[in-house]
Design a protein around this nucleic acid. Structure first.
Lengths: 335, 335
DNA sequence: AGGGTATCTGTGAACGTTCACAGCGTCTTG
DNA sequence: CAAGACGCTGTGAACGTTCACAGATACCCT
């Protein structure tokens, strides 16, 4: 649009009175440039307003110049978390320092996945950042087949060995919550899990059973699917089966909010009759009544580590060690 | 990594026994290609697994090959809405058909904005998709200066004439809610607005006063900042000033949830004593007690229109007409 | 038959970089 | 003083496309 022609490296060279080879060298921080030349070139760059053309650079360097972040949300759950915002922002910054841009793709259905696959297969990305990918996802194998650097933000259960990841210590976080409920004198502690094909689903339950041991009988465990409605239903089933339940740990704040709803309708007081714990410390945690005691994840750190691993892979590392970071218990009024 | 060399258009030409010019023609859907040549080339493409190199194509075409979506979230509000997910997905699909990829940037603070500006100024994007930009944002003028196609998803108040947009009819939606509350016999209807530098803040209040007329006295209007806490505080002030208030319309579900909290603490029953209306139909709308009557926006349609406008601009249109789409009232139990 | 279209094809020259190479001073060192 | 090392510079050749142009064939119309 009405763009005046952009200055090229030739223009800079001409203005500075130096060859384009040397200009390229200062652009890329080569050692062998005389102070005089460097100064002249920097002046010329400022004067012309030169910015490198990424297409030309990436063409000759044989790179794509971008990393694609794939959001796999099997359900209609989607964004919802402030998680994404933090993660995306952190990723953008980390990648930006290496002149990589972050392109977004969503892999919610087969059509989406097809598109993602074509994209990465086509060599249009230098790496892949997987978000909330579940274990059965065909994308994982496809990506593996494409031999492209890929890292997951959050472990991909059953695939830890095939896709490196940075994640928070979900199991440890669940353990914190369970220990807290026990320490408050709760005796009959139930759990509402997430889907058992997600890391959050599996590992948060593991942490729970770590603490409760054989007290964590199947009678006290119900499975949800992260949604509010599933939290409601799971709580209803628990109340029916174990009327004297005095605490419930939901694997997400949203499900905890559903549980609160059911408890209220059943006339139970929270936390007096039943203590409720959530997970995520998402925005709903403070909009429920009472506000949720929950587990906070170190999202920014996880994101940063994810990017670090991916960059290492892009730089040619054969493999990288997964990273796990600790969570924090946030005590509010629901427990 | 370990990538075998990717086939180029030359390889396809060689395998098909046809010149690269003709290959390029079938790739770009040119009319003048004989059926025989087309067939041979398609075979060769399939055989070699050829995929066009975007850098080379974009280099010669003098395009960036991507559109950047800028998320401007002045506060810590950030993602939160499923809004984003829908919008992003729709945008990816729409842009994908034109071989444009969607790169994400966040402009929450000056450092971010600086980065965004460098990026678009540098010609690294063919267009800009503005999300939730507020009127004072320096980015708007900067973008304007860069003479780059830019469209906002949701109007930028005070800048409607400078940045084209697709948005839902916020004012009409607020009108729907106000009319509904009136029709249910509510007499003292209050409003909790959003920040008055956002379209949602201004236009939802306008719709409210459209219906209430002089009954919408300043006594009945409180300003919030979209957060839960601001909803709580605004409601508290309203209760103090107008104890006999019998309905409140909050400009967002999150603030409505805050209002519910305050009302409950004040011993008011919802909807019996006070009806509560929200806006957005976001995930919190069904996790509150009682579930919120709210206004749903046609997000997918808005996103699609936004992309359409941007593409028109990229294609060289001098200007485009803004688009406004109707909202829908969702009646639940809070009103 | 001859001239004009319409359809199809191949070729050369860009697009804006980086990178390897070669060249040339100057300094150090044996 | 020759030989090498070091610091710095310019040049040519890629990278993989598209696009304009020119040439070739076939067809239609007068």
């Amino acid at each position: 649009m009405g763009n005046v022609k952009r200055p090229t490296i030739h223009d800079v060279a001409r203005v500075a009175g130096i060859s384009r080879g040397t200009v390229s060298r200062v652009l890329n921080g080569d050692r062998y440039v005389s102070p005089a030349a460097r100064l002249a070139i920097e002046r010329a760059i400022a004067e012309t307003g030169y910015v490198v053309n990424r297409n030309a650079r990436n063409l000759v360097r044989q790179r794509a110049g971008s990393v694609v972040m794939v959001l796999s949300e099997p359900h209609e759950k989607l964004f919802e978390d402030p998680n994404y915002s933090t993660t995306i922002r952190t990723a953008i910054r980390g990648l930006g320092e290496r002149d990589l841009s972050l392109v977004m793709m969503i892999a919610a259905d087969d059509r989406d996945r097809e598109q993602v696959l074509r994209y990465v297969r086509g060599g249009h990305a230098d790496g892949v950042l997987l978000m909330s990918t579940h274990s059965g996802d065909p994308l994982v194998d496809a990506l593996r087949g494409a031999r492209l650097p890929a890292v997951s933000c959050g472990a991909v259960i059953g695939r830890e060995s095939v896709i490196p990841y940075a994640a928070c210590d979900e199991r440890g976080g669940a353990r914190q919550m369970a220990e807290y409920l026990v320490s408050r004198g709760r005796k009959k502690i139930a759990m509402i899990t997430g889907p058992m094909d997600t890391p959050g689903g599996i590992q948060r339950l593991e942490g729970f059973t770590d603490v409760l041991g054989r007290k964590a009988s199947t009678r006290l465990v119900e499975h949800g699917d992260w949604t509010h409605a599933s939290g409601e239903r799971a709580m209803a089933r628990l109340l029916e089966r174990v009327p004297d339940v005095d605490a419930v740990f939901a694997a997400s704040d949203v499900m905890a909010s559903g549980a609160l709803h059911t408890l209220r309708q059943a006339g139970r007081r929270v936390p007096d009759d039943v203590a409720v714990g959530g997970f995520d410390d998402s925005s709903v945690a403070i909009s429920t009544h009472p506000p949720l005691t929950t587990v906070r994840q170190p999202l920014a750190d996880v994101a940063q580590e994810t990017v670090r691993l991916l960059l290492a892979l892009i730089d040619g590392a054969d493999q990288v060690e997964p990273v796990t970071l600790p969570t924090e218990l946030i005590v509010r009024e629901s427990a």
